[in-house]
Design a protein around this nucleic acid. Structure first.
Length: 484
DNA sequence: GGTCCTTTACG
DNA sequence: GTAAAGGAC
């Protein structure tokens, strides 16, 4: 018997850990609800997780097996389950965040004590940390050369999914779970017994979270590769053009495998040339960004709470509570910013270009520490991923790897005008502006209070003056640099 | 060590 | 067009 511990690989297809375990099968699959992980989650993500797990459980049931579901500390649960199953080996896909690594190191020791072999495998990304480095052997801190090496390296094909004969039958799982439950285990365990959102201490999310699971992910992938991937390079920055894959949450939870995603993009490249070929490559480059940030996090686990870039002095963030609240509520009086923040609340998602805009606005216009924004995203995004979100926030805050230079500050009006010229995205999420012309929306900061009152009485005036705050942001960074 | 590059802004 | 910091080669 082999134990496969599912974490962020909630699928049976193209799952390296599962395929590895199945080689020596049969495999018993396990998922553990870990309080330490849930304490950092938000309702949309919990909803997504439960939906993905329900589908995973179904995939196992269709194959005559089932999913063991436990609630407790993996340090205790995993070795106990392995013992109850008389498992010879436990396999899992590696998570590169610091908290996960500390936990997994403890689990490894516990399994060693129990005499159970373990095999963590690189599954979530193609090229694991340490495998792509500068010519001097260091982890890259700028993206371009990382990308060139990532792009030119061979990409493995998807792993095959286990068949019924590779899996522990449901009865075996049931009796193991009963033995554990009858004992004085410090955790709950049952076969296929998924909790509800409220069981886990969360309110049902108000956001309309997109459909979770492998089937939905595959639909998104095939739709994307049939059409939008060819205009991705041109359209990806325009939030109303639906030119993004929407696979971020699927990749975060592993409801689809990275090899399967890449293979579909590679197939889309077959036989096309010129701009279409370059557009597919542009998307593949986004997959590489994801791996770049995984490398950064693996090498520098403290970026979760600390600036990557060292400044001479502390950055004197303003951290005004009212301005932060206005940002979170989508009430800043900067239409593109407010539209993004409201999309986040309504859909547990935000278009990537708009993420950059709202992040720049929080850090450079409101002069708020990026950690406030990161925490808000972590709570509200269905696709929140430590490595990617931290990378994005520190990029916008000019504190990260390959970061936006502190003096190159997004102009929220210019950004809105450029990427949402007709105000379509803005009006979709900011109904107060639905009857206002695009021109007036993009000039909102230049209108008089009287004009604003007449056009949209319920929409706020800008909370700050951009050009004034821009100068202040530059001064704030120059002071932190130790410049005079 | 010069050159290229960076999910630009501003005059 | 020009500006600006810092990596990587």
């Amino acid at each position: 018997m082999q134990l496969h511990w599912h974490r962020r690989d909630l699928r049976v297809a193209d799952n390296r850990g599962l395929a590895t375990a199945a080689e020596a099968g049969p495999v018993a699959p396990l998922f553990v609800f870990d309080r330490d992980v849930l304490d950092h989650a938000g309702a949309p993500r919990v909803r997504y997780l439960l939906d993905a797990l329900a589908e995973l459980r179904e995939a196992y049931r269709e194959r005559g097996s089932d999913l063991l579901v436990a609630r407790g500390d993996p340090r205790t649960v995993v070795p106990a389950v392995a013992a109850a199953l008389d498992a010879k080996r436990t396999v899992w896909g590696i998570d590169y965040s610091g908290l996960a690594r500390e936990r997994d190191a403890d689990v490894r020791l516990a399994l060693d004590d129990a005499g159970v072999a373990r095999e963590p495998v690189h599954d979530a990304i193609f090229h694991p940390p340490g495998s792509i480095t500068t010519n001097a052997g260091d982890t890259y801190s700028v993206y371009t050369y990382f990308w060139k090496k990532w792009r030119d390296r061979d990409k493995p094909e998807p792993y095959s999914e286990p068949e019924a004969g590779d899996l522990a039958d449901a009865g075996t799982l049931e009796s193991a779970a009963e033995r554990l439950a009858d004992g004085d285990a410090e955790f709950d365990i049952a076969v296929g017994d998924l909790p509800t959102v409220s069981d886990l201490g969360f309110e049902e999310p108000t956001a309309a979270v997109q459909s979770a699971g492998t089937e939905a992910a595959r639909e998104r992938l095939s739709a994307f590769c049939a059409d939008a991937i060819y205009r991705y390079a041109d359209d990806r920055d325009y939030p109303t053009r639906d030119a993004t894959s929407r696979l971020s949450a699927d990749l975060k939870f592993g409801t689809i495998g990275i090899r399967e995603v890449y293979a579909a993009t590679a197939a889309a490249r077959e036989g096309v040339g010129g701009e279409r070929d370059e557009s597919v490559e542009e998307f593949q480059s986004q997959l590489a960004w994801r791996e770049f940030y995984a490398h950064v996090l693996r090498e520098h686990p403290n970026v979760v709470t600390e600036n990557y870039k060292e400044y001479e002095e502390d950055i004197a963030w303003r951290d005004d509570a009212e301005e932060l609240a206005a940002w979170k509520a989508g009430e800043t009086g900067y239409p593109i910013v407010d539209a993004g923040m409201r999309q986040l609340r309504e859909e547990a998602h935000m278009h990537n270009r708009v993420r950059m805009i709202v992040a720049s606005f929080l850090t450079k216009d409101l002069l708020c520490d990026w950690r406030h924004g990161y925490a808000h995203f972590r709570e509200h995004l269905a696709d929140h991923d430590t490595a990617n979100d931290n990378g994005g926030w520190q990029w916008a805050a000019s504190t990260g790897t390959d970061a936006q230079p502190y003096f190159r500050i997004f102009n929220p009006m210019t950004q809105g005008e450029r990427y949402d010229p007709d105000g379509e995205y803005i009006k979709r999420y900011v109904p107060e502006l639905s009857d206002v012309t695009a021109n007036a929306i993009h000039e909102w900061h230049e209108l008089t209070d009287l004009e604003r009152e007449r056009l949209a009485p319920d929409y706020p005036a800008p909370v700050v003056d951009h050009s004034e705050r821009r100068e202040r942001a530059i001064s704030m960074f120059e002071a932190a640099r130790g410049d005079d």
